[in-house]
């Protein structure tokens, strides 16, 4: 008969590996020192998009749901945070909370309508609703249409810490980034995350075990929208700017590109993907090359050469990495 130790090993494989913990701590250390060598604004932009892609991956990589409307949460939260800072002049932490709250609310509404559909229909519903939101943003007076919201100060965090200084802002953004990634990791590796994975792998089976799968999908959708909103709020705080670009469907497409390039279904994948895309965009912006063409070509190469994405392919080829 089976003994206690035998199933303990199963539980252990789910826990983080000691080597992994060291790696994570080392990466956090690098994150702390990085602004000494690299322009902090670029790093913060990277973190915003990496968080956005991670939020997206929570839905696609673990929930198996392809949303084509995540720009609504990213850009929507950016608008709300910018508006809160400029018009209401509240502290940045409250402005961010308001932005995230708006993204959660919007996620609930869009999610409620979208999770009733599957596959391509799900993607189409999210696209349609986010386009509706785009046109709302285009017309609504508080977004200032084509001009966007700009010309506000970042304010003081908790009324004490002045975020005007880019190094201070960097550590604030980095802290939010690390905390969010930890939260996403925790959600993925929770009982809820396990059910989400079960729904992704075999929805009919999950239903037959008594799970109202739409609720789990909606839960994942709202959480993903919330983190996407946090990324958008941080971006608005960073650039002191919120525009239509962030709610446009191009942005929804860009986050899909980042996530697929890096590889879905791992924590590192979307971060690598976002890093690659943002760095490419930054370098190409000053060169003569057309950005979209190069990005498109990169995507084609990735699809042809490593379908699992960069991280996915590495994990597949290096068996030691496969221990989660």
């Amino acid at each position: 008969m089976i003994v206690a130790e035998d199933y303990e090993t199963v539980a252990d494989s789910r826990r983080s590996h000691p080597a992994q913990r060291v790696l994570v701590l080392a990466l956090i250390g690098v994150l702390l020192l990085l602004p000494l060598w690299v322009y902090p604004v670029l790093l913060m932009k990277l973190m915003c998009f990496a968080l956005f892609a991670s939020a997206f991956n929570l839905l696609l990589g673990y929930g198996g749901l392809l949303s084509f409307g995540h720009a609504a949460f990213f850009g929507g939260a950016a608008y709300v945070t910018a508006h809160a800072l400029k018009v209401w002049e509240i502290n940045p932490e409250f402005a961010i909370l308001t932005g995230v709250g708006a993204a959660l609310g919007l996620g609930l509404v869009i999610g409620l309508l979208a999770v009733r559909r599957q596959g391509i229909y799900f993607a189409m519903v999210t696209l349609a609703l986010s386009q509706m939101f785009y046109f709302f943003c285009l017309q609504a007076p508080f977004t200032h249409g084509e001009d966007g919201i700009q010309g506000f100060s970042r304010g003081k965090l908790f009324g004490i810490v002045d975020l005007a200084d880019s190094t201070t802002l960097y550590y604030f953004v980095a802290a939010m980034f690390v905390a969010s990634l930890f939260a996403i990791w925790r959600i993925v590796h929770s009982p809820f995350g396990m059910i989400l994975q079960a729904v992704r792998e075999n929805e009919q089976r999950a239903i037959s075990l008594g799970y109202s799968v739409q609720r789990y999908k909606l839960g994942a959708f709202v959480m993903s929208a919330g983190f996407a909103g946090l990324a958008g709020s941080l971006k608005a705080l960073l650039f002191q700017f919120a525009t239509l670009t962030d709610v446009n469907w191009h942005m929804s497409g860009e986050v899909i590109l980042m996530t697929l390039l890096g590889g879905i279904g791992s924590i590192a994948g979307p971060i690598v993907g976002a890093g690659l895309v943002v760095t490419l965009q930054n370098h190409l912006a000053t060169s003569g090359f057309p950005v979209t063409t190069v990005l498109g070509a990169t995507f084609i190469v990735c699809v042809l050469l490593f379908r699992r994405g960069i991280v996915g392919e590495l994990r597949h080829r290096l068996p030691a990495w496969r221990r989660k």
Binding site: A11, R14, R15, R186, I187, H189, S190, P191, F192, G193, M194, I195, Y211, Y216, G219, M223
Partner: peptide
Amino acid sequence: AVQFWRPLGSL
């Protein structure tokens, strides 16, 4: 099943 804040060890 709905506990998204707890580790898998809780299982």
